[in-house]
């Protein structure tokens, strides 16, 4: 096997220039946890690898200038995102999702940009990032553009990025005042496995205890994270009913089937885990009505 050339650009512009020159024959490498497997199993045979490891400025976590969002550099690792105090308080569901990926060794290497652009249907962070309406900043020869996570993920391992674009950061909006959020992962085989079903939930309650807003995004049950706007709209103004939402989502979805569970099984797990995620999100609501006593 002929070995690919490896490039170590030090700026985003330089990385984009190499990608552009190779016109689809080059592969970006961030943490390399997915690319290494693809190379070893000969799933890809790129002419060039473009490692981002020496590119400056892609490892920062911080509030955006307007103060309304958290910016995660593309090379921030899952472990760094999961333990970052600001992200944990501003968008707990996103920190939750990075904390449950794989095992500690994977989380120490895998990056925020990598897990999104890999676009594997059975990943955890994309559902949480979709629920909070995160966007990615993509940089190409013509400059930067903003792509909502919703528009980025097109299908199985398919994204809206052009061959000559890289993700430089992911921008995560702060949760609305008083809102609670959670990401719960259910894995059916072993502890480090990808999810059978992942559920991201955001809940905001009105002063009278009714539901002011609910967002639910389901991961690993379809090619891309699933959101059902009609069910979210129907829940508003009524008492929050986690079990009822679980039933409603179980009826509404059309889950895929794979080694981690049949379509029937996944539907039943959606029923259980939507209820649990909504309950967990409600417990984290601040300033609103107190959760009912446990039991």
């Amino acid at each position: 096997m002929s070995q690919p050339l490896v490039f170590f650009p030090t700026t985003v512009a330089e990385a984009v220039e190499v990608l552009d020159r190779y016109g689809g024959e080059a592969k970006v490498v961030a943490g390399g946890t997915a690319v290494s497997l693809m190379l070893q199993h000969r799933l890809i045979q790129p002419a060039a690898l473009v490692s981002l490891q020496r590119v400056d400025g892609l490892r920062e976590v911080g509030r955006t200038e307007e103060g309304t969002a958290v910016r995660l550099g593309a090379l921030v690792t899952h472990a760094e995102a999961a333990r970052h105090p600001f992200l944990r308080s501003a968008a707990p569901l996103v920190a939750d999702a990075f904390a449950v990926v794989g095992n500690p060794q994977v989380r120490a290497a895998a990056t925020v940009g990598g897990v999104l652009t890999e676009a594997d249907y059975a990943s955890d962070p994309p559902a949480a990032l979709r629920a909070i309406d995160a966007v990615v900043i993509a940089q190409g020869p013509a400059g930067a553009r903003i792509i909502p996570v919703y528009d980025l993920l097109l299908g199985f391992y398919e994204t809206a990025l052009a061959d000559n674009e890289i993700v430089s950061s992911v921008v995560v909006p702060l949760l609305p005042e008083g809102a609670g959020s959670a990401y719960l992962k259910y894995s059916s085989r072993s502890s480090e496995d990808r999810p059978c079903v992942g559920v991201a939930a955001v809940v905001r309650q009105a002063p009278d205890g009714s539901c002011a807003e609910v967002r639910v995004v389901l991961g690993a049950i379809a090619a891309v994270p699933v959101r059902v706007p009609e069910l979210e709209a129907a829940a508003v103004g009524r008492p929050l009913d986690p079990a009822g939402l679980g039933d409603a989502y179980a009826e509404a979805v059309d889950p895929l089937e794979d080694v981690r569970g049949s379509a029937w099984y996944r539907r039943e797990m959606v029923r259980v885990w939507v209820a649990r995620a909504v309950t967990a999100a409600r417990h984290r609501c601040t300033g609103g009505p107190q959760p009912p006593p446990a039991g």
């Binding site: 490498v29 390399g32 946890t33 690319v35 290494s36 497997l37 690898l49 490692s51 472990a79 500690p104 060794q105 994977v106 120490a108 290497a109």
Partner: peptide, 9 residues
């Protein structure tokens, strides 16, 4: 930090 060398470039 512990990392798995088999999937580390």
């Amino acid at each position: 930090e512990p990392v798995s060398a088999c999937i580390l470039p």
